[in-house]
Design a binder for these strands. Structure first.
Lengths: 394, 394
DNA sequence: ACTCTTTTGTAAAGAGCGCAGCATTATTCC
DNA sequence: GGAATAATGCTGCGCTCTTTACAAAAGAGT
């Protein structure tokens, strides 16, 4: 008889009785994360486990450094005051880096996502990849030095870059950064850090940030628009960031009929623009002028918004999201864009989603990088199961 | 102290030791589904459980009717021949219904997805909703009558309709069927069936079918194109059908710049079309003429394909799928469409996905409905946990 | 100051489950 | 017919959770 073992789909592994305990430990950790310090009784009701059982597991988690004890303060309750337990967010840390054209922004956060340190270093827009990576290294080093952490204390790193990123973390062509085609920052950082290092497109990270701490906290289906001198999009569907098979999801700007590549030129080439103004400040000037009633400026903004709306409509009709978040540099002038954008979408879309302005500003990409790094940590912890925990501060 | 119970995110419930057993039972069922009848030893190695433990669980599953025993036949192996166990696919059944303009197609399948009965009934294209639902009822009744099953034996039903469907299963406006706006077939069927009844857009179901048994079996990121007198799309991302927040994902044809609504008119209005030909046969005639070299017909096909490509490019750039599947009535002429479509996409897209022709033909929507119904059954079984199983054929 | 109430902390008994190991059984090969 | 092979079935062991019970700690009332 032939040995017909189909290993095509991975079959869920059977649950051992010791694995069950791990699951319950994870269940308790999950019940604690994001909540204020809790008593054993609270955790027991939340997880559905019995109180003694919960207690045993909690003791183990404390011994392993995952939880810390909060001795009861003099609160006025009837009955014996309870010890409270807090998730030890300082057990591990993650780093998010935003490698932009003019600057590198690195942020360090604990497992709760609380940002502990932020470093911002300028970069020459014309710097070659090696120099740019060196600045990124310096920013990361400063994060470590300022907080007294060692590379082993970092559990995940995410780097945000412009342009599409393939599954292996390599940047592909079509990037505005000089010489940045086929650079692999992940490999570069892997030399010093043994933790997982991810590289991701900046728009996608900004979308994550908006869902985490920004304007789309309540939504599971989000189209994030990066509106600035560069135009891009990041997509979150069913609560998860979608990259596409080749990592190029959202790059609708490449379609000629979608005028995203040239949309900002309406602002740069505005007729009423003063002569000596810098390219980087031109857009801001035009928005201000439009706000004060300048005819040519208003036309420029209208044309820009109309071009922006074409691609947005394609995204909205493809995905039917709950929310469209307008981010990027131009989101500071959202008051001028939101209305016309909504009108344009109303003309073309079956169901017009809410349109909101970003609330995060320039830190959104780095924040999203933190979020992705935290997701990576969570996936490893909750997916495979609590591995021998890195005893924190031994 | 204030009672701060955050019930915002549902916390995973703790695992009881009896729940563990359910999980292991599910694990064994999963290891058996889609595989040929297996011995206990095979199941033990596949699930990672011990052989005695596996045996106990298997006995229980047999007693509950989930598994059936296959006594050893005279196969030539050394050693004691093993009993084999087979998933009892007949323990439950699902029904998929395709409510089209000209016909209603109902299919009945067991839990393995093996189609047991198919009924096809004609409908007058102008029939009102009540008459159309009556035909659907008749088709479902015939499935039951022919197989001798009762309504209680059906574990899930999915109905495919044209046009967008919202989360509650109501059809919305923008449907080509007469009077079909805001009809709720789910409610209608719920009167006779107590099982879950889903209503879904036909394009989306066809996409599911292609991934299940059609041209995209190997892909997790799929754009399905319905190319016929009506044009539509269905999206599968990360292996899951995506509906969008309002259920209108993929309805990019509503964008005016995307000429999907009018694309087929290039074929209908072809100059070389003979006078007396029926509207429904016009397209087929034009494709045949183009194949034999008719100039006007070739132009019509080229224009049609170009219009089809605009929307397809938007979908591809938004999602970056692995595969585009060309389905619908025109997929019979895929030899004429695939090449030009690929060329158009090559001009506009960063990464051109594979383009394949559908292999399922007219049954794709009903098949996809079956798949969705089976998914619903799986979700209830594997998600919540094996409920008191419906003792099959008591 | 004492007792009562309420809630927490902790220990012991009981049950269910999976695993390892050994004896038993059924079949083929020599 | 005997040896080799592989599946089946049974028993004891360890692990985990739950239930039950009791001791400890703090405030409220008399």
């Amino acid at each position: 008889m032939t040995e017909q073992v189909t290993t095509g789909t991975l079959v869920t592994t059977g649950t051992d009785v010791t694995r069950m305990r791990e699951l319950n430990a994870l269940s308790i950790v999950r019940a604690l994360r994001g909540n204020p310090p809790s008593t054993v009784t609270e955790l027991a009701t939340r997880t559905g486990l019995s109180r003694p059982g919960t207690d045993v597991i909690v003791q183990g988690l404390v011994a392993d450094g995952w939880l810390t004890v909060v001795e009861p303060d003099g609160s006025s309750v009837v009955g014996r005051p309870a010890r409270r337990y807090r998730f030890n967010a300082g057990a591990g840390h993650v780093i998010g880096v935003d490698v932009g054209a003019h600057k590198v922004l690195a942020m360090l956060a604990d497992l709760d996502g609380t940002v502990t340190w932020t470093t911002r270093l300028p970069v020459d827009p014309g710097a070659d990849p090696a120099a740019r990576l060196a600045v990124a290294d310096a920013a990361v080093d400063e994060c470590l030095a300022a907080t007294g952490l060692r590379p082993e204390d970092i559990w995940a790193i995410t780097v945000g870059v412009t342009g599409p990123v393939d599954a292996s973390g390599r940047t592909t062509l079509f990037t505005p950064l000089p010489g940045w085609a086929s650079v692999n920052p992940a490999e570069h950082l892997a030399a010093r850090f043994s933790c997982p290092v991810q590289v991701e497109n900046d728009c996608k990270l900004a979308a994550l940030a908006e869902r985490w701490q920004g304007a789309a906290r309540d939504a599971d289906d989000i189209v994030y628009l990066l509106a600035g001198m560069r135009t891009g999009a990041g997509l979150i569907i069913d609560g998860t960031l979608r990259r596409g098979y080749g990592g190029a999801a959202g790059e609708i700007g490449a379609l000629r009929a979608v005028r995203w590549l040239t949309a900002p030129s309406h602002l740069e080439n505005c007729a009423s623009l003063p002569a000596g103004i810098d390219t980087d400040d031109a857009a801001a000037w035009v928005f201000n002028a439009a706000r004060s009633g300048d005819k040519a400026a208003r036309t420029a903004v209208r044309r820009y918004t109309r071009d922006l709306a074409v691609g947005t409509a394609a995204l909205v009709l493809t995905l039917d999201p709950q929310v469209v978040v307008l981010g990027g540099g131009f989101s500071r002038s959202a008051d001028l864009i939101l209305g016309p954008l909504a009108r344009e979408l109303g003309r073309t879309c079956l169901r017009v989603p809410e349109i909101r302005a970003s609330t995060l500003g320039a830190e959104s990409v780095a924040l999203g990088a933190l979020r992705l790094a935290l997701d990576e940590v969570d996936a490893r912890l909750f997916g495979v199961g609590l591995p021998a925990p890195v005893a924190p501060r031994a």
